[in-house]
Design a protein around this nucleic acid. Structure first.
Lengths: 158, 158
DNA sequence: GTCGGTGCAAATGCTTTGCATTGAT
DNA sequence: ATCAATGCAAAGCATTTGCACCGAC
């Protein structure tokens, strides 16, 4: 990954906050300090995350928000289409930011646990075709490839 | 569904049992009446299933096996590559028979919950290409399309 | 001031585990 | 006979919920 691949997260926090505020207002809900904190934490994880990771991020930042609040806020973030649930395993829920980015698919190394995100146009086409063939309108998908990273064996001998 | 679509499940139970027995023996494990019952129940669900459904099937058949045993047996069935976990939602685990069939992907109607299974060669090719592009060897995948069945609205007005 | 939000702790629901008993090999 | 399997009930875990208090609007 190139050194400058990091899309500066602070560039997105402003519009993201605005979008979330607007969404909440439209539902008669309130924008609170806790929700802002959670949004920050979500952004800090540029990729897939779990609830415990958010909790950890917030601890690092000296912020303290209860797990219950995180779960409740996540529901709203999903409805606002700011994040999306990703099915990675059946143990616990994973989420990813989708606001301002294309929803990503994932390649998981079953040996190292490494997760690589990708997008592929051909996949979208196939998806639409398959859905149409079965009389469906496709509105989303999850694609997860399990594999072994070719350097998995080498890297782990340290 | 066409009347003859039902692949006669009893045709597969014999080899399946044999495979499972062999697997268990190779691990120093035992083939019990309960495990045979569970295998039967798995077969009776020609597609995706959850643990509670197996339990129900077995009740119907007058068989009584504890949930704990089902969970323990499922672990072995997965290791024996007779069934496979399918990630459909994060609430609970889903499984599908893979012995004697190609692993299927799924199209889920978000309005009716209807699940359609499919296979697509083009998908396999894309999968391999994507994995290779990232230095992975692909060994499996999950593809889930969310959509709306075109007749979903009509069917539900009864 | 009114509701919705929050933290906490208890509850829930799926899955796992400890233990005494049963059963396959 | 031995060692794994079973059923039950209890434990575990991620997630949800009830409730009393707090805070955004």
């Amino acid at each position: 990954m190139p050194a400058n691949a990091k899309t500066n997260d602070s560039d997105i926090i402003q519009p993201l906050c605005a979008v979330f505020r607007r969404f909440l207002k439209s539902k008669g809900l309130k924008f609170t300090a806790e929700r802002a904190t959670i949004l920050d934490a979500v952004l800090s994880k540029n990729g897939v995350f779990e609830v415990d990771e958010l909790l950890f991020e917030m601890h690092q930042a000296g912020q303290r928000v209860s797990k219950a609040t995180i779960y409740r806020t996540i529901k709203h973030l999903i409805e606002a289409e700011i994040i999306q649930e990703v099915l990675l395993d059946s143990r616990q829920a994973h989420y990813q930011l989708i606001f301002g980015r294309r929803p990503m698919d994932h390649l998981v190394c079953i040996e190292t646990g490494k997760i690589i995100e990708f997008n592929d146009d051909a996949l979208d086409k196939i998806r639409s075709r398959i859905a149409k063939d079965h009389g469906f309108d496709a509105i989303g998908h999850r694609f997860l490839i399990y594999g072994v990273s070719k350097d998995a064996g080498d890297d782990v001998n340290g």
